[in-house]
Amino acid sequence: MRVAIAGAGAVGRSVARELIANGHQVLLIDKDPASLRPERVPDAEWLLADSCELSSLEESRMESCDVVIAATGDDKVNLVTSLLAKTEFAVPRTVARVNHPNNEWLFTEAWGVDVNVSTPRIMSALVEEAVTVGDLVRLFTFRKGNANLVELTLPDDSPYIGKPCGLIPWPDNCAIVTILRDGQVYVPDAEQPIESGDELLFVAGADSEAELQSLLAPGQHAAGSPPPD
């Protein structure tokens, strides 16, 4: 897979190293000569260019990329890069970094963004996931599928403790992915019971989250913990 990363700062370089370690081809693009440090990621391609300029993206052979990651520290640059990659070069997958939380609403398919990565949102979700029991926590949003990865730690008073997964009336538009228990991962087949303290991971549509919360932890407040869209 060929991946272009706009922004050769600490974030871009770290992502590049991970992708290269997994066997992918990576191109790092940055318009700041000071950021071009090929010795930091010697196995990557490097290009001194402005990712907001069409001519620069043509020079990078953007049309041959499977994924474009806009990882600069400027939200405007990340949006424009994603939009050009998607509309002018038909890149199948775009991932954009959100630097300022107030701009997150812009990072949608309308701007060519398939997946946005908001550090404040991720950190907030991880904190909630670590300390809450019985509240549904939204960990990740799948833009393409209009669904979310959500987590709920089963409280002691859940009415379904000890019940096999196959006998629980899960909401429509919702699927249990895995059960985390005592440091182990359990496959949630029909015979697998859920227990107090289990961390349950689901892929669920936003319209099914409240029902899922009410089903497993009716004693918690109705709204749950997922952040608003």
Rank of each mutant, 00 (worst) to 15 (best):
I5V: 13
P226T: 02
C165S: 11
I20Q: 06
A206L: 13
S35N: 13
V77F: 02
G134M: 07
R97D: 05
G145A: 09
S82V: 08
A217E: 02
D198Y: 11
A223H: 11
L167E: 15
P155L: 01
N22V: 00
T153M: 11
S124G: 14
N102V: 11
K31T: 01
A16H: 04
E209F: 06
D66Q: 14
T153R: 15
P33T: 03
S124L: 12
F142E: 06
G134R: 05
F142M: 10
Q184F: 06
S196K: 09
I29W: 06
D74E: 14
P188D: 04
P38Y: 06
Q220C: 04
L47R: 00
L106E: 10
E199D: 11
L152W: 03
E58H: 06
L167P: 00
S208G: 04
L19S: 03
G219H: 07
P171N: 10
Q220A: 12
F142Y: 09
E63V: 08
P42H: 12
G219C: 03
D66R: 09
I168Y: 02
V117W: 07
V117C: 10
V80P: 01
A110Y: 06
Y186S: 10
R121N: 08
S14A: 14
P228D: 15
V3G: 03
S60H: 01
G224L: 06
L215A: 06
P169T: 13
L106P: 01
S35V: 01
E191Q: 11
N148D: 15
E199S: 12
D189V: 04
E151C: 08
H24V: 00
S124M: 07
D30T: 00
P218E: 06
T178K: 14
L57W: 03
F140D: 13
I176D: 03
I176F: 04
V68G: 03
E211H: 12
V187P: 00
D207T: 12
D198C: 08
A71F: 05
G9S: 13
S225E: 11
A96E: 04
P193S: 02
I122N: 01
A147Y: 01
K76D: 12
R2L: 09
G166H: 11
S208N: 05
G7S: 09
D32F: 00
V68P: 01
S51P: 13
C165I: 15
P169W: 11
T72Q: 04
T108S: 15
E88R: 14
E129G: 10
T178W: 02
S64H: 13
N173G: 03
N103S: 14
V80D: 01
E18L: 15
A130L: 12
